[in-house]
Design a binder for these strands. Structure first.
Length: 197
DNA sequence: TACGTGATCACG
DNA sequence: GTGATCACGTAA
């Protein structure tokens, strides 16, 4: 069943991030349905330097300041689309970057989009999973209560002992905030963005 | 380890 | 206007 607004409009972004592990991200784009279980996420709070929202609202990050439950999609390095879930109440610009999925449904569609024959690691990284699920900037600001992108609870429960936390990837510019252990993965899951350590 | 790639943002 | 920068991915 589809996660409701109340799931996203909560205060503690790291709690929500942990709870997203095991949930299922679904997209329905051009009548192609694809889905995958979330196995890796990173939490971002507007109060720390790692977040795009730290310096305040801009045209790009505007949706982060809205109420939770919207998609924040932006272009990174001129090449990769990155999909985030906005959380917290209006004005508190938290977001969670979805970094890796275990493909569940529509794998043929994903293979076509990735231009490959091998289903190995087609969604193991934020840029790759966005491409595999056809999520791009046109979906920035999309309401996750609608029928293009949403997140489902399919009853998969990830125990606390199965969750590994570590520093977030690629945010050296954030200084000491780069050390926050706000990257969460499912222990030993082979679909995560980097070989497990 | 290097670099493509182009939007974005902080300057003026 | 302009230039530095960037929440990656791939090749080597």
């Amino acid at each position: 069943m589809k996660l409701a607004k109340s799931f996203f409009i909560r205060e503690n972004v790291t709690v929500i991030a942990r709870q997203l592990l095991g949930k299922v991200l679904v997209s329905n784009i051009n009548n192609q349905i694809t889905s995958g279980m979330i196995v890796e996420v990173e939490a971002y709070s507007w109060k720390e330097r790692g977040s795009h929202a730290f310096k305040g609202m801009t045209k790009r990050n505007e949706v982060m300041f809205d109420t939770g439950g919207y998609a924040y999609v932006y272009l990174c390095y001129g090449v990769h689309e990155m999909f985030n879930v906005v959380t917290n109440e209006k004005g508190k610009a938290d977001a969670i970057l979805i970094r890796a999925l275990e493909p569940l449904f529509g794998i043929e569609t994903m293979l076509n989009r990735m231009n490959t024959d091998s289903p190995i690691r087609i969604t193991s990284g934020p840029g790759k999973l966005a491409r595999a699920m056809a999520i791009d900037r046109k979906l920035n600001g999309e309401d996750l209560m609608m029928n293009k992108i949403w997140i489902e609870d399919q009853g998969i429960k990830i125990e606390r002992s199965e969750i590994v936390s570590s520093a977030r990837i690629g945010i050296d510019y954030a200084g000491e905030d780069a050390l926050l252990p706000w990257r969460f993965t499912i222990k030993g899951n082979k679909w995560m963005s980097k070989p497990s350590t």
